[in-house]
Design a protein around this nucleic acid. Structure first.
Length: 423
RNA sequence: GGAGAAUUGGCAGAGUGGUCGAAUGCGGCAGUCUUGAAAACUGUUGAGGGUCACACCUCCGGGGGUUCGAAUCCCUCAUUCUCCGCCA
């Protein structure tokens, strides 16, 4: 969430920037500022009342000590009024703070100056493209047909065991998945990220810390018995490593990588574009997360982009990078670049990575700070990105690498798979 | 799942109703001394709100209660440790 002080000092900028998300924030921003003024006023009133009652209590204590019980008892009566006043004030204050917070939770992050205005993916800007789109032989198939033909992914079996969106990988398909995970983790750790194995369920506080709660409750599977949520991405447990943490400046930057399955309810998504591996309820992903000094976070962002580029280049997959427009940038992000791989047989681009800088938006919720050179606690910047999401990379490989003799395994993966072709 | 003990500042650890935001030690920072370092000595060292700055307010695992007054008493939840049960 945004900081009230930031909103107060940058009112115009906030309104202008949020307009890029097609949000008219004037009223919300004004409410925030008014609520905060009210909050301050009530807080001061309450503080004064408490101060008075504190000093009375002290006086009563002294009177008892000097044996003047009568005077003390007389003073006690005065405190009951103060007590009532402070109770009322603190109720009012709590209501006001709650209302202010509810407002703040609804305000998305302020987009970076480079983010274009726009409503939907139509308005995203393609900023980079690399790799040749292969010409496929006659009779080339989409990945779900290839999966069946070579018996490497069984969607029907997943339907039986669990339901739609929970595919079963088998044989060389399962091995290829494992190879991709190992390859991605190796690339990330070589780039300085520390590998973590994280919990696949998180509590409410964690869901709140990264911004999934309260707004996107419906996206996550909720285990009500224990009030835990299945993670929709490793970003949630991975970023919450740093919840309520004060780092020293010398500890920055921090890099975390982890492989986890991800669970998404994807309520209301049906149709041809969710076929096969395109959209699932359970999928595998390797994530990278960074905690950065505010002055370095955009440089770090570029570094993450280069890192993902490097992986796709090694895999020799045709891809492009999009700068997301305001309307398509997620709630908590200030800047997001999406990577898309061209899925030749489907003749469309598939999103395989999303790299975002959240600036202080998550850190503010997480209370993730570092001690700056002046010895003051300052909010850090958080970033994350996929490197990479497995199913669509797999779809891209199957479709782009298919030949009449079978599916060729990209060279960098062969040491991990132990085979060169699926046939 | 059952029984018992615990949870205090970066860490260790005192504090069982008022003068405690909290002794002491370690660590951190600054200084004295030193060619430099170490040692020694001196000072300083939690967070949030509020203020031009003070004042002042809040926080001793979370929430609630008793009391004029709570780190200290009560209730409740969470976590940790020990014993028992179960178990990959």
């Amino acid at each position: 969430m945004l900081q009230v002080a930031f909103i107060r000092e940058n009112k115009e900028l906030v309104v202008e920037a949020l307009a890029k998300r097609n949000i008219n924030a004037v009223e919300m921003i004004n409410d925030v500022l008014t609520f905060d003024e009210d909050r301050k006023r009530l807080q001061t009133e309450l503080d004064n009342t408490l101060a008075e009652s504190n000093s009375l209590s002290k006086e009563i204590g002294n009177l008892y000590k000097s044996g003047d019980a009568q005077k003390a008892n007389a003073l006690k009566e005065k405190t009951s009024i103060l007590k009532e006043t402070s109770k009322d004030l603190s109720d009012l204050l709590n209501t006001k703070v709650e209302a202010l917070n509810q407002l703040l939770y609804k305000i998305p992050n302020v987009p970076h100056s480079s983010v274009p205005k726009g409503n939907s993916e139509e308005d995203n800007e393609e900023i980079y493209k690399e790799g040749d789109i292969p010409t496929l032989h006659d009779g080339a198939l989409p990945h779900w047909e290839l999966a069946k033909k070579y018996d490497i992914i069984d969607f029907e079996l997943g339907n039986k065991i669990t339901g739609a969106g929970f595919p079963v990988y088998k044989g060389k398909g399962a091995r290829l998945q494992r190879a991709l995970i190992a390859y991605f983790l190796d690339k990330n750790t070589a780039a300085g990220y520390t590998e973590y194995q994280l919990p696949l369920m998180v509590n409410e506080a964690s869901g709140f810390g990264t911004g999934q709660l309260p707004d996107k409750e419906g996206q996550m599977y909720h285990v009500t018995e224990d009030n835990l949520y299945l993670i929709p991405t490793a970003e949630v447990p991975g970023t919450n490593i740093f919840r309520d943490v004060v780092l020293s400046e010398s500890e920055l930057p921090v890099g975390v990588t982890g492989y986890t399955p991800c669970f998404r309810r994807e309520a209301g998504s049906y149709g041809a574009h969710v076929r096969g591996l395109n959209r699932l309820h359970q999928f595998d992903k390797v994530e990278i997360i960074r905690v950065e000094h505010p002055s370095n976070s955009y440089k770090a962002f570029d570094g993450m982009i280069d890192h993902v580029k490097d992986i796709l280049k090694e895999l020799k997959l045709p891809y492009r990078i999009l700068r997301l427009c305001g309307g398509d940038t997620s709630f908590a992000a200030a800047l997001t670049f999406d990577f898309e791989v061209f899925s030749t047989a489907q003749d469309r681009w598939l999103e395989i990575s999303s790299v975002s800088n959240f600036e202080t938006f998550q850190a503010n919720r997480l209370k993730l700070r570092f001690k700056n050179s002046e010895g003051k606690n300052e909010l850090a910047h958080t970033l994350n990105g996929s490197s990479l999401a497995l199913p669509r990379v797999l779809a891209g490989i199957l479709e782009n690498y298919q030949t009449e003799d079978g599916i060729v395994i990209p060279e960098v993966l062969q040491p991990y798979t132990g085979f060169k072709i699926i046939n």
